[in-house]
Design a protein around this nucleic acid. Structure first.
Lengths: 239, 239
DNA sequence: TCTTGTGAAGGGGTTCACAGCC
DNA sequence: GGCTGTGAACCCCTTCACAAGA
């Protein structure tokens, strides 16, 4: 996690807060929409509303990138689109492989948001030999045995794991061994990776559980309805 | 967001930090695995490793739930499973509807992690009348016009949106109108909802963009390879 | 006058380190 | 002796409020 100390105090002292990085894609999306409507400039207030954050936060975020706005006016839409894209590394091409072509893998392969932002699906891989050759999103599914050569040949540095939980660690090891240094994990498992490899995880059921927690709260709010006898313990007790 | 002031200082002063809530499902998963292997007790160190966090954080998290451990021994696995499940509201049944049965919607419908944690898919909805009646994960897809009656009849309070971005806000409005108060949004849009409705979003392309940001950093680390002429500006400049 | 850019204050979360208890 | 539970320190992020500047 701790992204080894940086260097190069180029334009501004490097070191954009992680929380800011996580919001840049949000701003980029909102700006892209404005750009498509040929809106020339936008204020922090307007853009913040479109991105679903508050304007002070947005201005603070942009201040880490540099002084890209004009006081009394706002931000130049095209210019910001470019600067944020560059900061995120989207001005270059990122070949990715998707491993595990079930429903989820297929959904990811078909997802338009990837291609439009510099992510190119270099290959779809699956352990099921029966799937090999089948076209998904216009690409042929290839057998997992080709993983190493595909990663090497295409200089893939980002892998997406959409396999069942049981296969995820092994796939990870192979990806890392082949040279992948960033992994987006959809399998509900904790992955172990060497230093220098980034993992982000998306867990569908965790999100629902968090919602359930808050939902439960709401139910208990007004009506005092939730039954919780307070002495409510199961048969098993701690030693 | 600010979950209105609580009440009931029942077992302990209510108010579990949001960051802790987000980790409870992680602990629960690790504990469930231990439970299946019939492991009776576990130390904070072991459990933390299994969940991918550090042990101090885990102990602090558990301290918000109560004193469920035994000093010198550890935590009783079954007991903790129960307590966390209860805290998350997973001891009750949560009917959910999934709207938008494309690849992603189908993947969600098939996802085992839901059913196993108290989430029951009450219905699959899609605007495409041609899909109606088609079986997905054993359930017939129903037309979006049935949304209101299905939500009411099944007392659905959680909705999952897997539609294209363009349809997401309208679907949200209908869900909220029908009584849904928690939404899990997979569409790449900012949703507007009234107070009292919770929205969590999962954005596939944002995760990749964050990885790209870090990946770019790595590339520039050792070799100083990334070209960034520093005066690198596009044709468009701010006014 | 209007909006950005930012010090400063405030709040939350993480980590440390050890007292408390088995 | 071992492990939990937790005050306290620390750090990061958010929010405020206003000076700076077009």
């Amino acid at each position: 996690m701790a992204t080894g100390r940086s260097h190069r105090p180029a334009t501004r002292s490097r070191g954009i807060p992680e929380a800011t990085v996580a919001r840049l894609p949000l701003y980029l999306r909102a700006l892209t929409a404005l750009s498509e409507r040929s809106v020339p400039t936008v204020s922090s207030e307007e853009l913040a509303a479109a991105a679903g954050v508050n304007s002070a936060k947005l201005r603070k975020d942009f201040s880490y990138l540099g002084s890209y706005g004009t006081r009394g006016v706002g931000y130049d839409v095209e210019y910001l689109v470019y600067q944020i894209s560059r900061e995120l590394g989207l001005t270059q091409d990122w070949p990715v492989v998707i491993v595990g072509i079930g429903n989820l893998g297929a959904a990811l392969a078909n997802y338009g948001g990837f291609a439009s932002r510099g992510f190119r699906v270099a290959a779809l891989l699956d352990a099921d030999a029966g799937l090999a050759g089948r076209l998904v999103a216009g690409l042929p599914v290839r057998h997992i045995d080709e993983l190493e050569s595909i990663v090497a040949d295409n200089q893939v540095s980002i892998g997406v794991i959409a396999t069942p939980a049981g296969a995820a660690q092994e796939v990870t090891d192979r990806l890392v061994g082949a040279g992948v240094t960033s992994i987006l994990n959809f399998a509900p498992t904790v992955l172990t990776v060497p230093d220098g490899v980034d993992v982000r995880k998306v867990d569908l059921s965790i999100e629902l559980q968090i919602l359930a927690f808050h939902e439960q709260r709401k139910a208990g709010e007004g009506e005092n309805g939730r039954q919780e006898p307070d002495g409510d313990v199961p048969a098993v007790m701690p030693a």
